[in-house]
Computed example of a mutant assay.
Amino acid sequence: MIYKIRIILDAEEDIFRDLEIEASNTLEEFHNSITQAFGFGGSEMASFYTCDEDWNQDEEIALFDMSENGSDVRLMNETVLDDVLSEQSPKMIYVYDFLSMWTFFVELADMVEKEDGRSYPNVLFSFGELPDAPPEKKFESKPSMDFDDSFDSYDDLDFDENWN
């Protein structure tokens, strides 16, 4: 089975690539296809994240296990594409280069039979040029509590001046 997948850069401008890849490929092979399609060197850390219909991030599938004691993190080279992408769960998030945070929305568009004589993975369509730097993320934050720093005197707070 061949998956036709659209990978969209999280940006105001439309920048995307349509790839076709075998459903039996690993996420590491898919990662390599994405980096090549967008012109990245491919040497930076990256992760896929499963998500729901509203793009709410769930489980991480990492390129490498960076934990000190070998955690339960799923790895790209051990995860097959059709284990995480299907008609029932057609969306994932892909983050490349954790210092720059290139973020992409990955969506399964179609599933077709493999064509004889055609090589996969294959870039079907390319739209838009990748900017020199990743788009800025705008995070909205609300303070979790109000903090009143209007103490006139700290003498009432029962601190021991010689605590050490």
Rank of each mutant, 00 (worst) to 15 (best):
D65W: 03
D132L: 07
A23M: 05
D152G: 15
A46Y: 01
L9P: 04
Y120W: 04
M101K: 05
Y96Q: 14
D152L: 15
M145G: 11
S153N: 14
N32W: 15
I93Y: 05
L81I: 01
K142D: 11
L130R: 01
F40W: 02
K114Q: 02
L75D: 01
D97F: 03
I61R: 00
E136M: 05
T26W: 01
D160S: 09
E13V: 11
F151V: 09
E22M: 00
H31R: 06
S33F: 01
D58K: 15
R118E: 15
T103W: 01
N69I: 12
E22Y: 02
V84M: 07
I93W: 00
M1Q: 11
I15T: 08
P135G: 03
D158T: 06
E68C: 08
E129Y: 07
P143N: 11
Y49I: 02
L27E: 05
I8V: 12
M76A: 04
P135W: 07
E29Y: 03
D155I: 03
D146Y: 13
L19C: 07
G117Y: 04
K114G: 00
P143M: 09
S100E: 13
L75Y: 11
L63I: 09
I7V: 15
S71V: 08
E161R: 00
P134C: 10
S126F: 09
L75H: 06
S153D: 14
L75V: 10
E78N: 14
T79F: 00
K138D: 11
S119G: 11
F104T: 05
V112P: 02
I61A: 00
N162T: 12
P134K: 10
Q88S: 13
G42L: 12
